[in-house]
């Protein structure tokens, strides 16, 4: 059952760079022999211990709980401690190690996480109490099973920044606080002890919530199955329900909702008007006309689907319902 695994050759190509020493980033090659289930971290530590003690990286618990050793393993954001070398070698023939993305390299695999942490602090990650609802004296708060169920995923987060590294919105726009911060915010927004839900939802709409691309790269990168993209979706719905269609993002979402109720399918130009308002739409006019030359349908009212009244009935039945955790 636990037969000794045969050792396999594991070629490592590890990113090396020390800005203090100058020079260009390069890859350093190391040849190891390891059992296929050996975690990448163990391989890197073996390099440090036996071959090259100058390799810099962060690590601590080696059991996927401290969040230190996130890095790119063959371009994928991974915790080195829980990524076995075998499948990587099988697929890529080698193990290429790079520092995480979206954080400047301090040295080798060590990145500067100050931006990551300051984005996390931006969402005020602590209970904010409503003075009119103090904590019960001398005893814990009570929670309903439904309230407890809201904490299914987020407490698993170990702040390893794998999601932050994988996120194209972080890469493209400093306004976006990143998946981890938003998943963390969700954890506070659904916490019955917190007294600032609406305020939090109002603020986050102004600080990047609607820049999430829903690309789910964070959910794919997350080693703890926090599923940040899904938590961000939850936050958006809670924001719409709490604040209404106040921002471009929420206007677009609500516009979409109304659009479908009307015709059962999308009216692209109308949606632009709903999101941008009249002035914004005029700003888009040039591009709109440019597109319409090739795609004249944009100027026509789209067809209404058969049975649109069924769609409206669904709306009537469910639209007023409370939000259901998905």
């Amino acid at each position: 059952m636990f037969a000794e695994e045969k050792l396999i050759p594991v070629p490592f190509d590890v990113y090396r760079f020390d800005p203090a020493q100058g020079g260009e980033p390069r890859y350093q090659h190391y040849e190891l022999k390891l059992a296929p289930h050996t975690p990448v971290l163990s391989g890197l530590l073996k390099i440090r211990d036996e071959v090259d003690p100058t390799l810099a990286l962060r690590y601590s618990c080696r059991s996927a709980i401290c969040g230190s050793c996130a890095m790119l393993v063959n371009s994928k954001s991974r915790l080195a401690c829980r990524t076995p070398v075998g499948p990587e070698v099988a697929k890529h023939g080698r193990v290429v190690i790079d520092p995480m993305r979206n954080q400047p390299v301090l040295r080798d695999l060590v990145v500067d996480q100050r931006g990551f942490w300051s984005n996390y602090r931006r969402i005020e990650p602590r209970l904010l109490l409503d003075p009119s609802r103090p904590m019960p004296e001398g005893r814990p708060t009570q929670m309903t099973p439904a309230q407890v169920d809201r904490f299914r995923e987020t407490p698993r987060c170990i702040a390893c920044a794998s999601c932050y590294s994988a996120c194209p919105a972080v890469e493209a726009d400093p306004e976006f606080p990143g998946p981890m911060a938003l998943a963390k915010l969700y954890r506070f927004v659904v916490d019955p002890r917190d007294g600032a839900h609406d305020e939090r939802l109002r603020k986050v709409q102004l600080s990047g919530l609607w820049l999430c691309l829903r690309c789910h790269l964070c959910t794919e990168a997350c080693p703890k199955d926090v599923r940040p993209s899904e938590r961000i979706r939850d936050l958006k719905e809670l924001a719409v329900r709490s604040q209404g269609a106040t921002e471009r993002g929420s206007r677009h979402a609500v516009g979409f909702l109304e659009n479908i109720a009307e015709a059962g399918q999308l009216n692209e130009m109308k949606l632009v008007r709903q999101t941008d308002g009249l002035v914004g739409t005029v700003g888009q006019l040039g591009q709109g006309l440019r597109l319409a030359r090739k795609k004249p349908e944009l100027l026509k009212k789209p067809r209404t689907i058969d049975g649109v009244e069924e769609v409206r009935k669904l709306y009537e039945a469910l639209q007023k319902d409370e939000e259901v955790p998905l």
Partner: peptide, 22 residues
């Protein structure tokens, strides 16, 4: 007891029973 209650009030997400208690 007071320590656990304090940590709960600080925001610790403890597991809970069906009745919502710790």
């Amino acid at each position: 007891g007071p320590t656990v209650v304090e940590m709960e009030h600080f925001g610790t997400i403890f597991s809970r029973g069906e009745d919502g208690s710790l």
